[in-house]
């Protein structure tokens, strides 16, 4: 992490002052003062309920009667719950299908729209549209394009002579694919904006140096753009992963979890357990905890990978910038 350098620099820069207060304590207090405004709000309004929800994972609670501690029963119940198995598998499939595609599309889009091109602002705004437009409209358009009997996509396929046209959102084997394509299309504009902002931080001098060295565009992208974008890519990757694990709206809008249970995902099941039928907040919380642990594991792996890669790059960057 970069802070090693900080510490020595800070130590050199700040003369010892303030009656014997330890320098480290002082620095920590300053850091806490930066964090406090956000953290207190976050703690009270988000963290406390989240902790409470985690406690509920070990309880049976219907929202009205006193909660009853039942140990690991909620987790044991998952093992024999066919809906959980289905939801778990579908969530993983969705994450694998969505994450790389979204990141690649968003990055390509951002690089394309960072060029000096005609009507750049127009194209940027337009790319953001599926994300901000009304959910109903976005879903309606998608369902229209992929309507099994009258949609243009299938009409096009039919004109190519394809037989056995896919049923898309209404087909067992194609429903998840349809949801994944929809998610990528709807969300890539969002991540594009983050990449665009990240690209503003890249140093043009490095490109000049690289092209003097005779690097072609592709080499420049790999060796100059990507390393400089590393913190942004890290952020986008973690967000896409988390959001994909938490997918709900996209599924709700396109398939409502169907046909049958073929697109049932974890958050969908969590919602069903908590709000459809007898409220089972305990079981819903246990499911959330599984989701949380899953995401946490993936995030920690990403953090570790990010740190390993970070260290050498930072140095290189620093040298060049100097």
């Amino acid at each position: 992490m970069p802070s090693q350098a900080n510490k020595s620099a800070a130590a050199a820069a700040t003369p010892v002052k303030k009656r014997g207060m330890k320098k480290e304590t002082r620095e920590a207090l300053i850091a806490y003062s930066f964090i406090a405004p956000n953290f207190i709000g976050f703690c009270v309004f988000t963290l406390v309920p989240v902790i409470f929800a985690f406690v509920l994972a070990f309880m049976e609670w219907d929202g009205v009667h006193a909660a009853k501690f039942i140990g690991l029963d909620n987790f044991i119940r998952m093992a024999s719950d066919p809906n959980f198995k289905a939801a778990f598998v579908h969530t993983i499939v969705y994450v694998i299908g969505t994450v790389p595609t979204t990141i690649i599309c968003a990055l390509a889009l951002a690089i394309l729209l960072n060029q000096k091109i005609f009507a750049r602002n127009f194209f940027r705004t337009v790319s953001f549209f599926p994300y901000v437009a009304s959910l109903v409209a976005v879903a309606a358009v998608w369902n229209m394009l992929f309507n099994p009997s009258m949609g243009p996509v299938n009409q096009f396929l039919a004109s190519l002579g394809v037989e056995n046209l896919p049923k898309w959102a209404a087909g067992n084997d194609t429903a998840m694919l349809t949801v994944i394509m929809f998610s990528v299309w709807k969300n890539m504009g969002y991540y594009m904006v983050i990449f665009l902002a990240g690209l503003q931080g890249t140093n043009p001098e490095l490109y000049e140096a690289a092209s003097l060295d005779g690097a072609n565009k592709w080499q420049q992208f790999w060796n100059v753009t990507l390393p400089q974008l590393a913190p942004t890519t890290f952020f986008v990757t973690i967000m896409v992963v988390i959001q994909s694990f938490k997918v709900y709206n996209e599924v709700y809008m396109i398939t409502q979890g169907g046909p049958g249970t073929s697109t049932l995902v974890l958050v969908y099941q969590i919602y069903n357990e908590a709000f459809i039928g007898t409220p089972e907040y305990g079981y819903a919380s246990a499911l959330s905890m599984v989701l949380f642990l899953l995401v946490l594991a993936v995030t920690i792996i990403q953090f570790k990978a990010g740190e390993d890669k970070d260290a050498p790059k930072k140095k290189k960057h620093a040298k060049k910038a100097a």
Partner: peptide, 12 residues
């Protein structure tokens, strides 16, 4: 901080 992003709102 990041961990809480992973908890679906429906749960809490």
């Amino acid at each position: 901080y990041i961990g809480t992003i992973a908890v679906p709102w429906q749960a809490y």
